[in-house]
Design a protein around this nucleic acid. Structure first.
Lengths: 246, 246
DNA sequence: GAAATAGTGTCTTTGAGACAGTATAAG
DNA sequence: CTTATACTGTCTCAAAGACACTATTTC
């Protein structure tokens, strides 16, 4: 059997979906697309995560498929991109047994021009707090979006992820603000600065004037391909521990 | 289009693979199966992770497919089971564009009878330290196994995962031993006990005599569906931070 | 000068690490 | 008794939290 031949049994549909986060107007938001009204398309007119079928001719791998789809909607080429997980079942898509590989991305809002690539009717940012209150997303995308949000908030407690929400160079107060928006609570300035500088992932890049009264030191990431991991969470964990699947 | 119909384009193959860990004879081991020699089967005679195609008729979801495959090989019904991630590309399987959804499981070695389910020639435990030195695994399974090992060791630093490697009730010294085997280094007894008892996931279950000189308190998990998360790692992280994919 | 934002210093608390000590069993 | 293992106590250290303080800019 060579690539492209059909095997002797039915195959599930395979898609890649993206949860793209940014901080815009002081709120954590994620990118949604409006599904087409074309007859035969499932969930017509509903909002969904950007994504779609893996194209075995165009895509070399899942990650390159994810990068292609991200670029088509946002024009962003070097986001923070991490695999979130996969969802697959007989019932999640009315077209049949389907599984989706989900990636989550962090991008700075500044300079991003949303594009209606593919067959989407519209593309828009939606604040994550409006996910529950708004109309439900297509397929199982509400569940997926919530899982992505949980993962993001978990990791923000002990990693440098929010740095990817800013364009470089940025100041420590700006970075602290990203952390606070994602976590939804204020952080102590002194502890925050100590932690960030001790983690050793930042590089001084000269003072940035004009953003506030007193100029602040600007920083760049030493290595955009690395994520710093802190020795402790911001506040000792008290929330409910996660459920296992087994 | 209903379930089972072929769409108008080629679909990737979809499999589920499992990385099943246990501690046996003082070593962290994972389950491997020997691939059949049947002509047409890829990687004949090589060792591989247990798994196989999603059966759209039998399997309701990815997780139930994973549970089915785990049960077929080990007879275990309530493991710790967590999704690890997915791997998919044009080249990872000679049969064509394929993606696999990988789960990782923790089970106690005690009482498990390995079964040669499906078309495997043999099933065996292999110590994880012999992964590099032995012959390479089939497909990209070496890479997947290493990713699972990394995830396990990471999470063991700050979660109660090793408790799922023991049959209940177990003692704190037994639990400490599971941590030490997985981490590959000794832990301080006093700090270990304080941490475990403070985390509040254990329930006293009476003294267990006969295992050593002095009987030790036995414990059960308060909730087998929850994983405790500790406020700090065992030793402050010093290792290299992970690479991002973007 | 006042106001605003950037950044520092000091004290307290939490929990890990090291390690010595006590407790309860088998022989 | 000795030995082995279970368990506790005490001291030190690292880093977070709280919060008062100083520094540098705009107006």
């Amino acid at each position: 059997m060579t690539s492209g031949d059909a095997p002797g049994f039915a195959l599930p549909l395979t898609t890649v979906d993206l949860v793209i986060f940014t901080v815009l107007e002081g709120h954590l938001q994620l990118l949604l697309v409006e599904r087409p009204d074309t007859s035969g398309e499932p969930c017509p007119g509903q909002w969904a995560l950007p994504g779609g079928f893996v194209d075995v001719l165009k895509d070399d791998s899942l990650i390159s498929c994810a990068r292609r789809k991200l670029f088509e909607k946002t024009g962003v080429k070097s986001p923070y991109l991490e695999q979130l997980g996969s969802w697959g079942s007989r019932t999640r898509d009315p077209r049949g047994w389907s599984s989706t590989h989900v990636y989550f991305a962090l991008i700075p809002a500044k300079g991003v021009e949303l594009k209606t690539g593919g067959n989407a009717r519209a593309v828009a940012w939606r604040p994550v707090d409006e996910l529950d209150s708004g109309s439900p997303l297509a397929f199982d995308h509400d569940e997926i979006a919530q899982a992505a949000l949980r993962r993001l908030r978990d990791k923000v407690e002990y990693t440098s992820l929010p740095a990817f929400l800013l364009v470089e160079p940025f100041t420590l107060p700006q970075l602290q603000s990203m952390y606070e928006v994602v976590l939804g609570r204020p952080l102590d300035k002194s502890a925050f600065r100590t932690r960030m500088l001790a983690a050793g992932f930042l590089q001084e890049a000269g003072f940035l004037a004009g953003q506030s009264n007193r100029p602040a030191m600007g920083y760049r990431l030493l290595d955009r391909n690395k994520t710093a991991i802190f020795p402790r969470t911001f506040s000792p964990r008290s929330g409910a521990p996660p459920d296992n699947e087994g």
